[in-house]
């Protein structure tokens, strides 16, 4: 260990500093721009804002056509997370505890949906949700995102549940617990961290997705990500507001990342690390 620690030393620190610098520079640049006026962005080239202003953020937070984008995104993301976790919990339990007819095929089929390209589903989704009158509603986007989030939640939760010894289930049944009561009172607290991680990943993948949420909405449920693309093409020059809107979309992830930092690898690998 000591030998490795020595060999790490300064060289390793330098590598990490350089890598983190590479990661942070583009984000810093966006922050820098979001605090400038358009005149300053286009007129002078400076590494930090000369006259920092929050005017761009004020524009977004006072204009409903902007801030409703955030509200819409949050609504469908939360809906999706609740639906995904609710249906995934019993299914993950079944996969982790029992063998049943076709279980392996089903588990594989779920995975293929996580891997399916959104582009393949964009048009059929548009037609499906239009024909049942759900076009441009929050629930349509929430349901569409279930395509990849439900399989993700099932896989992650199954990974966490398999770490809980089966003796606990059996003891509870002997003690006279019914299945629903056992599941809610005993089992769910045991895998609380797993539920948290699965919820975080559902939230995240629904938050970062644009293709489906843009295809399925026009006005009432338009996500912030789509509002941003419209601004790029229409006015094209309002860089300050665009940068501020971008910074605001980074915040939700940045706020909760600390709590899941040790599970990030596990979540991305579908609960299999």
């Amino acid at each position: 260990m000591a030998a490795v620690a020595e060999s790490k030393g300064r060289g390793a620190a330098l590598v990490m500093v350089l890598y983190l610098l590479f990661l942070m520079l583009p984000i810093y640049w966006l922050l820098n721009m979001s605090l400038k006026t358009n005149a300053e962005i286009l007129g002078t080239f400076s590494l930090w804002p000369k006259n920092p202003t929050l005017a761009n953020y004020r524009t977004i937070l006072t204009d409903p056509s902007w801030y409703m984008g955030y509200v819409n995104s949050l609504i469908y993301v939360v809906m999706n997370t609740v639906i995904s976790i609710t249906v995934a919990l019993p299914a993950a339990y079944a996969f982790s505890r029992y063998r049943f007819m076709g279980d392996k095929h089903l588990f594989f089929w779920l995975l293929t949906n996580r891997m399916a390209p959104a582009a393949v589903f964009a048009l059929p989704f548009f037609q499906l949700y239009s024909s049942i009158g759900l076009f441009d509603t929050h629930i349509a986007v929430a349901l569409a995102h279930c395509l990849f989030n439900v399989p993700l939640a099932v896989w992650i939760l199954e990974g966490f549940m398999s770490g809980v010894p089966r003796e606990i289930d059996e003891t509870a049944y002997i003690d006279g617990y019914s299945f629903p009561r056992f599941f809610v009172k005993i089992f769910m607290p045991l895998i609380a961290s797993g539920i948290g991680v699965a919820a975080f990943f559902c939230f995240m993948f629904s938050w970062v997705e644009l293709l489906l949420s843009r295809t399925l909405t026009s006005v009432n449920a338009k996500p912030i990500a789509a509002t941003m693309t419209r601004t790029v093409s229409a006015s094209g020059l309002d860089w300050g507001v665009l940068a501020a809107a971008g910074m605001l979309t980074i915040i939700p992830g940045a706020l909760v990342i600390w709590f899941v930092r040790n599970y990030i690898a596990k979540g991305f690998a579908l609960g299999r690390v």
């Binding site: 890598y19 990661l23 984000i27 995240m204 970062v208 990500a225 980074i250």
Partner: peptide, 15 residues
Amino acid sequence: CLVLMALPLLIPWNV
């Protein structure tokens, strides 16, 4: 390091 490294992974793709 973990937190800073994960940051780009959580940014919406169009951003």
